[in-house]
Design a protein around this nucleic acid. Structure first.
Lengths: 345, 345
DNA sequence: TACCTGTTTTACAACGATGTAACGAACTGA
DNA sequence: TCAGTTCGTTACATCGTTGTAAAACAGGTA
């Protein structure tokens, strides 16, 4: 069917290995032989069989990226960055969606596909430290997002300082004079680490700003989707009358924004809205969405670099990379009369 | 390093093939032997090597999905659906981003990775019929989105009736009394098939509704991103004074919406906005975005099914699947006083 | 006992590519 | 002329799995 080294070799009148040497650019091949082989390769339009190569080499050139859900623009943007960074190293990316489901996340780390992939970039949501500990260390794995568990993990990790970021975001709202600052995004599940860290930053900021913490202003959600944000905002408006809301990610914030506008509130006048992630949607919402902007390109690049280092057998101790973030102040937290809502990007 | 069939066989005291038989659930293995082998598998936590398997079987269980850009929510949602549909068949999906770049799209069909994947689902933007014709038919490919070229193509294809959809969308605007209906999304490049089809539908609708076509109301864009939509809308407002705008996809529409609101126009009062794709963002924009809603899940499912049929050596002639779409009327094209903006989903 | 039937298990050869080691040929220098 | 050194090329084994065909075994019949 498809041409193999053998077919090329026969056509060129050389041995299989010589063709292999040409394909792999080995030095000691005479110009004349090389030309003949290349002609044969072109004529048959030969392409190496990657399965055979990876069987032989023990490497496939494929890495897996496991994320909860590509529908969430944050993960879509992250995936884009990862694919680009992997591309620069000649790797191909295979994508798994876990839906943040613990069973699926376990499958991802179970190593079922370890022989197909050289490494794993994993952004877990529901996984526990125990799940992780049970993994037999086969293919290298780099964790994205939250650290799991409190102890030392044998895995490389890339994340941001969620507490500091959430604290800064909340402080920003307090500095603009808001006193009833709500939070949307805590989850009731035991494993929602990210949410807890952002809540912690939120609480720290309130204490620091001397704003009394009102538990009724903390709105739990089941998941981090637009509908959840919209629904949580609705509950907050019915009960707590906030004058600002810090949402633990941007899609929650866009959902909350939708509810506010639909119910006739002015944003930022009546209620300021702050998000987290800096997805593109937020930059084109009306009002544009203030947010915490993690350096997604750097997260992806760092993760790929860490994986590469581990693949080349480099380090033994686990690396911790904390990627910087910045705050993007846009219209949704703009003070009236300052008149620069349109100049901020 | 990792256990192989051989290791399991030695531990269980049977031959390699017997272990293989157990792993593959072959019938003629005695219960006692099976139990012993399974114990050994568990003890060593053996996992089959997929590279070897796919070398042997000529199948890898991996299919590639090539899309322009995961950042575009339409493709992210499509990818989600494809991954789910593939999952149901036990396939893994590997994702390529082409950026709509012709050179990258050529690489995708060049077959460089054909040995790694069993099939290809490809949503091309810039590819020409000539590029396609030059492909040596190795792994099966299903095209998503537009048909390429006019002649008969040897490839299966899944798409929607763009002309009809665009026509219906535009007619909807005309029926609501708008006469200066703009269009955003035509592209100057020779290969932008989708844009041309939607333009055709737009023009047909104008003719049908007896609305004179004003070329100054057709705004070209370089790409189909939010920023392009925003910028095109700005140009339209400066020159043409439209009272409605049909955008060839939702992110263009969201960009246009942003410009309208920023410049103080009322939507839908002053200008109605209609999109195409039905991405989730549009359902949470304010106003919510009317749009053409293709059945993305069915697109993904059909594509995967077609691929499966081809993989099982089924058909020889190319299939054409036209997936139905519906129109989602939301607030951005709502007539004032009708009072049902909130009941429409 | 010899023979057949059917089940269970095994040895062996692929799949396609590449590292190793060895080979012949063409040179060098004594 | 011959050993020693390159250089270019090759045969072979191997990566881990599975299809094929045959061997081993058990049970039943003549």
């Amino acid at each position: 069917m498809r041409p193999r080294l053998k077919d090329v070799a026969e056509l060129a009148g050389v041995s299989i290995k010589t063709v292999s040497n040409v394909v792999n650019d080995y030095p000691h091949v005479s110009d004349e032989t090389r030309a003949r082989v290349e002609a044969a390769i072109a004529e048959l339009s030969y392409r190496p069989n990657l399965s055979a190569r990876s069987l032989r080499a023990g490497r496939s050139g494929v890495v897996a990226l496991a994320v909860p859900d590509l529908d969430n623009p944050y993960f879509a943007e992250l995936a884009t960055n990862v694919i680009e960074a992997a591309d620069r190293r000649g790797w191909t990316v295979l994508i798994d969606q876990t839906q943040g489901d613990r069973a699926k996340e376990r499958v991802v780390i179970s190593g079922i596909r370890d022989h197909l992939i050289d490494g794993l970039l994993f952004s877990p949501l529901a996984l526990t430290a125990k799940d992780l500990a049970g993994r037999d260390e086969g293919t290298p794995m780099v964790l994205l997002g939250e650290r799991i568990g409190t102890g030392r993990s044998p895995y490389d990790h890339v994340g941001i300082d969620n507490v500091a970021a959430a604290r800064a975001a909340t402080l920003h709202l307090a500095e603009r004079g808001r006193r009833r600052i709500a939070a949307i995004g805590v989850q009731r599940t035991a494993v929602a680490v990210t949410g807890r860290l952002r809540l912690k930053g939120y609480q720290q900021a309130l204490a620091e700003a001397g704003v009394p913490a009102d538990p009724s202003l903390v709105a739990p959600v089941a998941r981090w989707g637009r509908a959840d944000g919209a629904e949580a905002m609705s509950r907050l408006l019915d009960s707590g009358a906030p004058d600002a809301v810090f949402c633990f990610n941007d899609v929650l914030a866009l959902g909350a924004l939708r509810t506010l506008l639909k119910r006739g509130y002015e944003v930022p006048g009546d209620v300021m809205v702050m998000g987290f992630d800096d997805i593109e949607d937020g930059r084109f919402a009306t009002p544009t969405l203030s947010t915490v902007a993690p350096d997604k390109a750097l997260i992806a690049q760092s993760a790929v670099d860490l994986l590469a280092e581990r693949l080349s057998g480099g380090t033994d101790k686990a690396h911790e990379v904390c990627v910087p973030h910045r705050l993007a102040f846009r219209e949704s937290t703009d003070l009236p009369g300052k008149g620069h809502s349109r100049t901020l990007n």
